[in-house]
Design a binder for these strands. Structure first.
Length: 231
DNA sequence: GCGACAG
DNA sequence: ATCTTGTCGC
């Protein structure tokens, strides 16, 4: 089954926003998240060409790591095309179909999904991590490399230092330093977890590099898959 | 009104 | 996201 069979695929930003509004009530927030998931999946997508419009060639990768040793347990890739043009706030519609196809290729059911991008730190509180969480029913978090929405004070310079990410009077995420003196990452809850647990998960996954090992592995796999697909 | 804007 | 040369540093 394809996500595009669940409901008409949006052809306009208005329709895409309506879908986000429809799915948002299904989010389970502020529930205790997985403190020590036995497996954690990282997801990422690589594009061929400019990567701005519909139809761009892409490769989606999912890498499942052992939650304790961080060793690779399973990998899955899917190649496809962007299902929506790039519009800030509607980013998920671009790669959702291909990401779900890659997830379907797994034998393992991950205890946590680590997504590239944001969860509720989003204009309508429904970023990619929320969308993937609701559709899979799995705990999910978003780890962004750059700011999107909200305001924050610069966190301390050491690994583990953090500052709340605020928007419209509410805390929507946390700016977290994963390495001493290195640019922080933006962590936000997607589904079935709390922010504190999400940040602890990220720190456990990012020991020697700024980004979680899950994200790094998925990034490399999606890149290789795209190249192998001849693009 | 003008700019900024996940990947 | 992707396109790209050189450059600084461990």
């Amino acid at each position: 089954m394809d996500v595009r069979d669940l409901h008409p695929w949006p052809s306009t930003p208005e329709e895409a926003e309506a879908i986000q509004d429809l799915l948002r009530p299904m989010l389970e927030l502020d529930v205790p998240g997985p403190a020590a998931p036995s497996t954690v999946a990282g997801l990422d997508v690589s594009y061929a060409g400019d990567g701005g419009g519909t139809g761009d060639r892409l490769a989606a990768a999912v890498v499942v790591l052992d939650g304790t040793t961080l060793e690779v347990v399973e990998e899955s890739v899917a190649v496809g095309t962007a299902a929506f043009p790039y519009v800030p706030g509607l980013f998920a519609f671009r790669e959702l179909p291909t990401l779900l196809e890659a997830l379907r290729g797994l034998t393992t059911t991950p205890g946590l999904l680590v997504c590239d991008g944001f969860g509720i730190a989003h204009p309508r509180r429904f970023g990619l991590a929320c969308h993937l969480g609701v559709l899979t029913g799995l705990p999910a978090i978003g780890v962004g490399k750059t700011a999107f929405i909200g305001t924050y004070d610069q966190p301390g310079a050491r690994r583990g230092d953090a500052a709340p990410l605020r928007d419209g009077g509410e805390v929507v995420g946390r700016v977290l330093r994963t390495r001493d003196g290195v640019k922080p990452v933006f962590v936000s809850v997607g589904h079935r977890t709390d922010l504190g647990t999400a940040c602890r998960n990220v720190l456990a996954l990012a020991r020697e590099y700024r980004l979680p090992e899950t994200t790094r592995r998925a990034d490399r796999l999606s890149r290789d898959a795209l190249a192998a697909a001849s693009g």
